[in-house]
Computed example of a mutant assay.
Amino acid sequence: MELNEKELEILAIMEKDARTSLENIAKMTQLSVEEVQDVIQKLEKENIIVHYTTLVNWSKVDSYHGVTAMIDVKVTPKRGVGFDAVAERIYRFKEVKSVYLMSGAYDLSVTVEGRSMNEISRFVSEKLSTLDSVVSTTTHFQLKKYKHDGIIYDQNNDDRRIVVSP
């Protein structure tokens, strides 16, 4: 679908912060609130805006003990459907948070979340690696998150302005 300049501008604003008010988006794009609302509804209907999410810094929550792993998966694509059928089988598992087709040394990049490393290792050995098309997996456990979706975690909020004195 071809989007005009204002629609692209609204998408960029919302991608940076989906909680930006309609009034602020209208001011930033020099459109009316109604026009902004119509554009957003159109983008949602066309499945261009797919979902609204919240980024959470779970490392700040003492009671949270979840684990995230990135798994490199080599697969044998299926005749007629390529990698799509294999990717669909993988993304249907509840543990899987994302699946991407990649170029390079492996075919799919799979992000998995679980309560422990043991839980993720069971997922890999009992569910993922047993799929017919899966040739091999390499699991990387996430130790610390520094930046995600353009947002820097644990940013030092010191005042970085230069002191100017007469």
Rank of each mutant, 00 (worst) to 15 (best):
residue 86 V to A: 12
residue 3 L to E: 09
residue 81 V to H: 03
residue 135 V to K: 11
residue 70 M to E: 06
residue 26 A to L: 07
residue 27 K to N: 14
residue 104 G to F: 08
residue 66 G to H: 07
residue 70 M to Y: 08
residue 4 N to W: 06
residue 105 A to S: 14
residue 80 G to F: 04
residue 110 V to S: 02
residue 112 V to P: 00
residue 17 D to Q: 05
residue 165 S to L: 12
residue 58 W to Q: 07
residue 43 L to R: 01
residue 156 N to V: 12
residue 15 E to A: 15
residue 163 V to L: 13
residue 90 I to N: 02
residue 165 S to M: 09
residue 109 S to Y: 07
residue 71 I to P: 02
residue 83 F to P: 03
residue 157 N to S: 06
residue 15 E to G: 15
residue 164 V to Q: 09
residue 28 M to N: 13
residue 157 N to G: 03
residue 30 Q to C: 10
residue 129 S to K: 08
residue 145 K to P: 00
residue 104 G to L: 13
residue 51 H to V: 10
residue 63 S to V: 13
residue 73 V to A: 04
residue 9 E to A: 14
residue 8 L to P: 01
residue 111 T to I: 14
residue 28 M to W: 00
residue 23 E to A: 11
residue 81 V to Q: 03
residue 43 L to K: 02
residue 87 A to C: 05
residue 165 S to D: 12
residue 148 H to M: 10
residue 57 N to C: 05
residue 80 G to E: 08
residue 64 Y to A: 09
residue 142 Q to T: 15
residue 1 M to Y: 04
residue 158 D to E: 12
residue 13 I to L: 15
residue 5 E to V: 15
residue 97 K to D: 10
residue 16 K to Y: 06
residue 76 T to F: 08
residue 63 S to P: 01
residue 139 T to R: 01
residue 135 V to F: 01
residue 16 K to L: 13
residue 100 Y to R: 10
residue 120 I to C: 04
residue 6 K to E: 10
residue 4 N to V: 12
residue 53 T to L: 08
residue 46 E to C: 00
residue 49 I to M: 03
residue 86 V to M: 08
residue 67 V to P: 02
residue 44 E to K: 10
residue 118 N to C: 05
residue 46 E to G: 01
residue 55 L to R: 04
residue 100 Y to M: 09
residue 123 F to C: 05
residue 134 V to Y: 05
residue 43 L to Q: 01
residue 98 S to M: 07
residue 114 G to E: 10
residue 130 T to K: 15
residue 36 V to G: 01
residue 58 W to I: 15
residue 157 N to C: 01
residue 70 M to G: 03
residue 73 V to T: 07
residue 58 W to L: 15
residue 93 F to H: 11
residue 75 V to K: 03
residue 54 T to S: 07
residue 12 A to V: 09
residue 154 D to M: 04
residue 144 K to N: 11
residue 46 E to A: 13
residue 146 Y to P: 00
residue 124 V to W: 05
residue 68 T to K: 06
residue 18 A to M: 07
residue 165 S to W: 05
residue 84 D to N: 09
residue 9 E to K: 15
residue 1 M to A: 14
residue 52 Y to M: 00
residue 77 P to A: 11
residue 62 D to P: 15
residue 18 A to E: 00
residue 13 I to G: 07
residue 136 S to H: 09
residue 13 I to C: 06
residue 127 K to Y: 09
residue 42 K to H: 00
residue 6 K to T: 14
residue 62 D to R: 10
residue 166 P to H: 11
residue 98 S to V: 01
residue 152 I to T: 14
residue 122 R to D: 13
residue 49 I to T: 02
residue 2 E to K: 13
residue 55 L to M: 11
residue 30 Q to W: 05
residue 151 I to K: 14
residue 162 I to K: 12
residue 110 V to W: 00
residue 85 A to Q: 13
residue 32 S to E: 05
residue 114 G to M: 11
residue 82 G to S: 08
residue 115 R to K: 12
residue 99 V to W: 01
residue 111 T to Q: 09
residue 43 L to Y: 02
residue 86 V to Q: 05
residue 15 E to C: 10
residue 128 L to R: 02
residue 76 T to Q: 11
residue 21 S to C: 02
residue 101 L to Y: 08
residue 6 K to V: 13
residue 131 L to D: 06
